[in-house]
């Protein structure tokens, strides 16, 4: 058991290395909050671990789907567009249009645009 766990930890660690930044971007887009993004990612990692989702062929998609799922429940207040602009600079109109969307749609559009997911996969991960 310990050996299996040890092997899993290394693989998961590698996966986290790969996904952290992109997952953060997705989580941030959904929560529009740094605190919220990290919280959502933590919940997603926890559920992914508990359910043994690491290491599968669709590992990233599953992880992202969990991020979308937990983002729905996130109650941490989001930043406003003005606050975002102040902190991260002015963004494109596309960006503001996207963050004005509901969370699920925001997730779907983000994953299509940024992760190059297909519409079907993005919709599925977004829970639509």
């Amino acid at each position: 058991m310990s050996k299996d766990v040890k092997m899993n930890k290394e693989e998961v660690s590698a996966s986290l290395d790969r996904y952290t930044e992109d997952a953060y971007k997705l989580a941030f887009i959904l929560t529009l909050s740094e605190e919220g993004a990290v919280s959502v990612m933590e919940d997603a990692v926890e559920e992914m671990t508990v359910k043994g989702g690491w290491g599968g062929a669709d590992e990233k998609t599953s992880f992202f789907a969990l991020i979308c799922k937990h983002a729905k429940k996130c109650r941490i207040p989001p930043m406003t567009a003005e606050e975002l602009t102040e902190k991260y600079g002015k963004k494109s109109d596309d960006f503001y249009a996207l963050i004005a969307q509901p969370k699920a749609e925001r997730a779907r559009l983000h994953m299509i645009c940024y992760e190059d997911m297909s519409e079907e996969d993005a919709a599925k991960a977004a829970g639509k």
Binding site: S13, L16, D17, T20, E21, Y24, K25, F28, I29, A37, V38, M41, E42, V45, E46, T49, Y88, G89, K91, S92, D94, F95, L98, C113, Y114
Partner: peptide, 21 residues
């Protein structure tokens, strides 16, 4: 849009927190 996201990054503590979780 991709360029919009360029500077939206986790700080160094995030990775450690995820590992901890």
């Amino acid at each position: 849009y991709i360029l919009d996201m360029t500077n939206i990054k986790p700080d160094g503590s995030v990775r450690a927190r995820l590992s901890s979780v």
